[in-house]
Structure formats: C-alpha cells, structure tokens
Design a protein around this nucleic acid. Sequence first.
RNA 1: GCGCCCAUAGCUCAGCUGGAUAGAGCAUCGGAUUUCUAAUCCGAAGGUCCCAGGUUCGAGUCCUGGUGGGCGUGCCA
Length: 562
Amino acid sequence: MQELRTSLVEALARATGLPAPQVDGMVGLPKNPAHGDLAFPCFALAKRDGKNPVELARALADDIALPDGFAAVEPTGPFLNFRFDRAAFITRTVQSVLEQGDRYGAGAPNDDVVVVDYSSPNIAKPFHIGHLRSTLIGWSLAKIFRFLGHPVVGINHLGDWGTQFGYVWVGCERWGRPADDDPDPILALVDRYVRATKLKEEDPSVEEAARDYFRRLEAGDADARAFWDYARTVSLDEFKAVYARLGVAFDHYTGEAFFNDKMDGVLADVEAAGVGEVSDGAWGVSLGDDLGFALLKKADGATLYLTRDLAAIDYRHRTFGFDRVLYVVGAPQSLHFKQLSALCEKLGKPYHDRIVHVPFGHVHGMSTRSGGAVPLVALLDEAHERALRALREEVTKRPEGLDEDAVAEQIGKSAIIFNDLSRGRIKDVHFDWDAALSFRGDTGPYLQYAHARINGIAARAEAELPDAVDGSRLPEDEAFQLAAQIGRFHDAVRKAAATYEPSAIAAYLLDLARQFSRANEVLRVKDAEAGIKEQRFALFVACRQTLANGLRLLGIEPIDRM
RNA sequence: GCGCCCAUAGCUCAGCUGGAUAGAGCAUCGGAUUUCUAAUCCGAAGGUCCCAGGUUCGAGUCCUGGUGGGCGUGCCA
C-alpha cells in the first residue's frame, strides 16, 4: 500500500512539476471506493496554471506514466482516480502478512526510548472504573510503541504518598484496622478513609491529625512508616490481581513514595537555579500569568505532587534516558503538566520539551447506588456474567465443547476494553452498563467473532495454504476490499502512535472485521474448487493475523473459538 | 473573572495534514440460515455538522466572536 502510494506520488510530481511532499498531501482515498483506490484532486494545480480543473484532470490522465502496480487512471470531474492492479495488490499484501506473521505492521528496532506513565491509582482507595481509562490507554500505547520498535518503559506511578494516607490512618486509629483474616482488607481501609474524610466536615481535628500523620511519614517516623507499609502492601496485592486479570503489566511500580528521599535534591535544584520564592509561607516558583504559581513546598514543609513529579522525571531521565515520557493522566491535570514542563525549562533541564501529557476525558455516571464508584472487579464480574448469559441464551449457534467460563471471561474483557479504547481519548464518557457490556454491533466481541470465525474455517473447511499466493484467483470486489483494508494496518498503527490514540486502531479493526464479514458471505472456502479454495483461505488467514496483531495492540488477547 | 476541553442522525460515536453524495453501531422497520459459528450479513428510514461572520476554487475540518456543557484556576492528587 505504502509503496504504491509513494510511486504514485512520484509519478504525479513528475507529471505536474509540483514538489512530491505537496503531492503527497493531496493524494487520498476516494470517499466512494467505487471511484478508485487512490485519488488526486486537481484544484490546486488548476489554480496554479489558471486552467479548468476538469480539463486538467483529463489532460493529466493522458500524460501520466502509470507506475508499476496500477491498472488504470481515469478522470472523474476534477479528480484523477487511480486503480490498483488488484490481483497483484492482493498477492503482495497477503504474501507479506503470511511472511511477517506477528510482525506484520511492526516497525524496525530503534533507540528512541519511550517512558509511559499510566494507571497510577491511589493506594488505600478503591481501584474503580475511573482508573480504567489510564490503565487501558497507557497499556495500549506501551504495546503500540513497543511494536514500532521503541524501547518502552512502563511505569505505574502509584499514588502511595500524600495527605490522603493520613485519613486512612486516622480512620484506622478510630475504628480499628481490618482483621488479619479479612477477605477484602482494602475495602475496610477504604471504609476508614471515607468515614474519616466525612468526619472531618464536623471535626477539624481530623484534618489536623491526618496532616500530622503525613508530616511524620515524610520525616521517617517508624510507626507511621509501618502503617504505610501495611496499607501499601494490602492495596498493591489487590491492584496486581486486577492487572493480572486484565492482562496489563508494568516494568516498574515506582510510586511517589519512591521519590521521597529525592525531594531535597529537587528543592536544591530549584534553589540553585534561583527561581524559588516564598509566598504566604509556602515555597514555589512563579510561572507567570498563564501558569500561575507552582507550589513545591507547603507552609508546613511537606512536599506536593508536583515536587515529586519533578523528582520522578529527573530520575527517569537519568535512569532510562528517555526520548519522550508519556503521562497518561486525565485532562483535568493539564495545568499540572504545563507547570511541570515550564518548571523543567526554568531549571534548564534538557528534557523539558519531551514531556507529553496524554489526556483523556472524564468518566461520568459510574457511581453505585450507594454513591461510591464501581469497583473494577465488579465491572469485570458483571461482564463475565452477561457474556455467559449471552452465550447460553442469545447465541443461536456455537461450537461444541466450549469452555464457557473461559470464553465468557475473555468476551467480557474484550467488551470492556474495546468500549473504552474505541472512542477518542479526550471526550468525556458517560458510563453506561448496557453500552459498555454490549456484545453486538461495533464491539470487542464483534472483532473476536470475526477472529473466531476464521479459526472455524481453518478447523473445518479442510483447506491448506497455497504454495504461492495468487491474487488473480480472487477477482471478487469483496476480496480486494478486504485485502485493501489489511494493507492499511501500517497506517492505522502509525496514526495511533503519532496521535497517542489507540482508538485509531480500534476504528481500523472494526472496518477490517466488517470487510471480513462481507467477504465471508461471498467467498466460501469449504466448497470452493481447488486452486481457488487455498487462495481464499490464505486471504482469510492474513485477515486473522492482522486482526490478532491489532487486538493485541489494544491489550485484547484474540480468542480462537466462541 | 481568566484558562483549557467538548458540541455531527432519536442515543453512543467515526470523520487522514481542508476535497467528490457527511459515515458506523444502537434503537425502529423489512429481508437473508438444508451449505466453513446468525455474537453475523443485506436493505429502508433517520442530518439547519450549536449559532453568526471570515479565509478559500472548496469548510464538519482553519480563523474571529457568541451560545450551551465539562474541567481547571497555590498549601489534594
């Protein structure tokens, strides 16, 4: 696909005298696929020459030397439409997928290190649906950049430090710690946290006690530290269970606490740069009208989130030598990251312009009846239940001997993950159980279904891959459209990386699955005559491979039967 | 007040760096299964792309100004 485009751009550049990059910007896909496979609008050229674009397109069609791989050029009004040599295109595309397998669409190894900071839940707070977006988007981006050949460092910057810990501590002091045999100790800790923060409304001493606890923790007080260790371990155990269930992983769990002993260094840095100042008893850096005052040390001496992020990025730069660091954090914190960049610039840090905030919109409407956020585990369990029910009651045909429980778990997760990653990051989402856990239409299960169907063909159609792929045996339009979509995988992956948008891949995969489903109505493998049978099978296998590669980039493990 | 983000079909959303008749899914209506999985496919219906100007041969897309909503705006993270 890419080579065809490049050679067409060169040919057009020669024929028109326009610079190739400009031509490249004009060549695009025709809106209506019936028009052709690539299109060149002649307006700009017509304007330059003071000619009629319709006549110009006609003249250009006669002039241009059709590059290899193209079968036809035809002017349609002011557009010049090009058609591929379809058979050759199918042959080339299917062949390269079969040859490259899991590496189809991948990039060459390079040295641009990408650090991805994602998930980063707060300790001693429930891991709820609100944490899902950062977790899934970050994990997907990590996989995408790794696929493109980058060394990737995935970091869970746990919120395991800060005043909120004080409230958990106060709560445990008042109402006791969860019992050792408590099956869900984190729930108990959350309960203490919620009760303590509620109590603070009427009893100001609670807030004071919480702050005092955090001060002691930062100062290295042994008792405070012991409680912190306990709460962190309990929380992390549960987080790791959720990550394991989702199939999400990290290279490091260096949370905010990890940087506690690096605070002095940061503050000294700022001091040395001579940009720090005292304001209302607190200490920080003034960043001007737009970014305001960046607080780095509270009046009571305790540090803040920003201080710890400053330490973290410096540490990451020293340790990983990153080319970029991606912060997959909600849009409400965009000011925070602008401040972080500005601070780094003021401090003369070489990485100040390599900070990328990858923001995402708010999630609304995910509260339970009781007002708390829905725990992620509850969502996963519900997804599992619904998938099981759908499998047993709604699905009309299904394979024999399925491990229904295992399939339901996979389908449920696919639905949840895809639902989140299929929309653009920045928009606020209104969480809706029925939409998130729908298994029909544009959903994760739809993609899985396409993948499983091809597996079914492989298992039952008694077809084998041909010795040589031959696209001329696949003259149907559906075959070409499917191959064309397979050939666009590169573009989708690169667009996703360039825009930090996994949804680019999600949208691509929907189109791919749709093209497959259409082709699957027409191109039967089982009863096809020898010679055609193998070619159709090869096309579908290439599709399955592409689906699998794309699904994995979203963090969804393709399933073989459903 | 100031700053950032969002606004496209009844609902949820796509729309490559401006290009041809604005696309999917859900919901509604109508079809398709003796044939590799109907969690599927085909069709119908559904639109002042929030409003008003501007730039351009051409604007859902870019600019300006509004309207509506969300978020942020120093001692939380």
